[in-house]
Amino acid sequence: MAGAIYRKPILFAIVSAIVILIGTAVTMFIPMLTPQMHPKLENLKPFTPLQLAGRDIYQREGCNNCHTQTVRPLKTEVMRYGEYSKAGEFAYDHPFLWGSKRTGPDLARIGKKYPDMWHYKHFEDPRAFFAESNMPSYGWLKGRSLDPEDIKSHMDALSFPYTADDISGLSGKDEMDALVAYMQVIGIAVTKTAASEAKPRVKAEEPENPLAGDQKAIELGEELYEGNCEMCHGEHGKGDIGPSLVDNIFLYEEGDLADDDYFEIINNGTSEGMVEEGRTAKGGMPSFSDQMQKNEIWSVISYIRSLQKK
């Protein structure tokens, strides 16, 4: 008699427990026992003590409340952030920090996108980079020193490898150093092959700037420069985090580059070891191909040329 269960609380509890455990077993417990839930990319490395300390701070400050760390395999999302996330990238993430809300941008591909200095400055004053950003300032992390013993015990808890030098090297570093170190390691284990398929390096179609000297283009270029370039290359191209654009050194060698090289660097960004006109880049310049249209990039170049003439 099925109705009896409604008179027997213990039996009722047992039956409810079984009923809830069916879905739990199929979607959670059983997959957990299979390798599909434990993939690892070949070149993925465990966090170093400094990076783990940074990740702890990321957790402590609740960064995951506003930033996701997973790029979905959707066309515009890959264009905006880069290669979509792979299961094997997260083998050392205890816990995962994919997040559920993008009040700020996704960070799955933030590693090595900008130079360290960019992060230091941006954490200290996000509104110096983006006037209307609503991100809290994290300058207060500077000068808060790390506790090497504490971090060592965290490494031990996770069984991550480290050397005595790694630990002693932590003294003198502060929380900001750690957080930046973590930023730079997020999402760099993924191979870039698929990403470059989605986003091929573009060569300039015109060898020379079609908008060279155009007054309107220079004005538009100035506006774009202030919104996109000034935070790194400084006011009027004087250089800051990024190199000066008005001296005569480009990609660490004397002598100017041609318009089409400028175009390619702005459009594609630079990466370590990339060669442009026989000069080797060290990386740090992000790609602007998704933010600027072709004529906008040419306008920025017109503006830079106008600065160089002054």
């Binding site: 839930m37 997260f90 995962f96 808890a157």
Partner: peptide, 24 residues
């Protein structure tokens, strides 16, 4: 969770598995 001191711990599960357990 794997405790690492009194005030800190790490999820026993990692990556996709951690995500699956958490959202379950």
């Amino acid at each position: 969770f794997i405790p690492a001191g009194l005030f800190k711990s790490y999820h026993l599960f990692a990556g996709v598995n951690s995500a699956n357990v958490e959202w379950w």
